[in-house]
Write a protein that binds this DNA or RNA. Sequence first.
RNA 1: GUGGGUGUAGCUCAGCUGGUCAGAGCGCCAGGUUGUGGCCCUGGAGGUCGUGGGUUCAAGUCCCAUCACUCACCCCA
Length: 423
Amino acid sequence: MVFLGIITAPRGTADILPADARRWHELEEAARAVFDAYGYGEIRTPIFEHTELFQRGIGEATDVVDKEMYTFMDRGDRSLTLRPEGTAGVVRAVLEHNMDKGALPVKLYYMGPMFRYERPQAGRARQFHQVGAECLGTMDPAADAEMIRMPATLLKRVGVTNFEVLINSIGCPRCRPAYVERLRAHLADRREQLCASCRERYDRNPLRLLDCKRESCRRLTEDVPQLVDSLCDGCASHFQQVRAYLDDFGLPYRLAPRLVRGLDYYTKTVFELVSSDLGAQDALGGGGRYDGLVETLGGPPMPGVGFAAGMERILLVMAKYRPAPAPKPVDAMIAHHGAAGRRIAVRLAGEWRDAGLRVEIDYMDRSLRAQMKQADRLGARLVVIIGEDEASRGVVRVRDMATGEEREMRAEEVFQSLMQKGG
RNA sequence: GUGGGUGUAGCUCAGCUGGUCAGAGCGCCAGGUUGUGGCCCUGGAGGUCGUGGGUUCAAGUCCCAUCACUCACCCCA
């Protein structure tokens, strides 16, 4: 396929062609409607940031920062990184524009491309898109509950109902260290039996031991103490309240004691929305509370909670349940023949388009027959025919494509009737 | 980074055990209708059989390498 010349899109990236773009629009519109209802405003942050933002925000020990970032030096010797997630950039912008000093909470949403250097597979790409929201400045468990409800609502809006909500609480800096020590102590004597990556996790990031998929590790950690049983009073109470709100919403969820998430900034509530319609990468979205992140990024102590969902993944599931939206039918195809006819056709097309009509015209010097075929393909409601004869007599011939009826009219009359029907 | 699968026209794919295997359907273009759509009929354009080596008298068809796609591990959205 590729020999001399043609260059393909880089690995893990994809073009979104018009037929797919229509699906994207559906999702984007649904998302904006949901965020709007919840009072979230859109924020658009840069696609690249200082590398340090992610190192500090996401955490050096995470896989994302450790081995998945697209990092490069620019011509001014700055280390920059294509954003691997959205939260760090949003928090940075909030601080940079002093939004933390205004009315709280700050409620923002975003959607756009993210970049992670990984091996592509079903539902995973190097450039992918996330839609997400952040709520900064409140500890209210209702904010956590809403942050779970928003993506759930969005999914339902676009016809995705086959998903499950998983939630857990991973505690806070007051109670988590103690738990981690209990966990280590519990596993100390069987440490050597863990898989290689779990042996490393034991030192670096013990919480991740909990979600190893390996059967052998599962067995070894089966009787390990549960995080939820080790929460401090504050975290336990917070988690209870979040669950109560979810119950009030009538939003079913499953407690997932081993759900921990791969980014360092999470505290208390963490959650994922997973679907069996996806492949091995089964998360449609996820998120949680991050009460230490703002401070980590140089701001004041300020709690926050957010979620992010993978747009391609949602689209993948959407496609299973919904037909692709058809392109909008054109209002009129202006078919022409001869030099005089073409001049009039081009002028009319321009004028009608200015008025908001969808008008097509032939540029290939095709026969009337071919132009009719084209009109049919485009779903044109009517075809306006302007040949030598019509041109010289100052009229146009109008064919109704549904009924096949045809008659002569003045161009202005056709325009008026199109405008009436179009509303 | 590690493993498995796949790679033939724009698209979906046939091509068995190496020797008319370079094909079909759809799509596209044109004609049947010297100014008229959807159906139908006819014709046409379009392919270094991913790429590079090798084995062989002969290779889409076997071997090796490489690239790409894909699925899984890992990790997550």
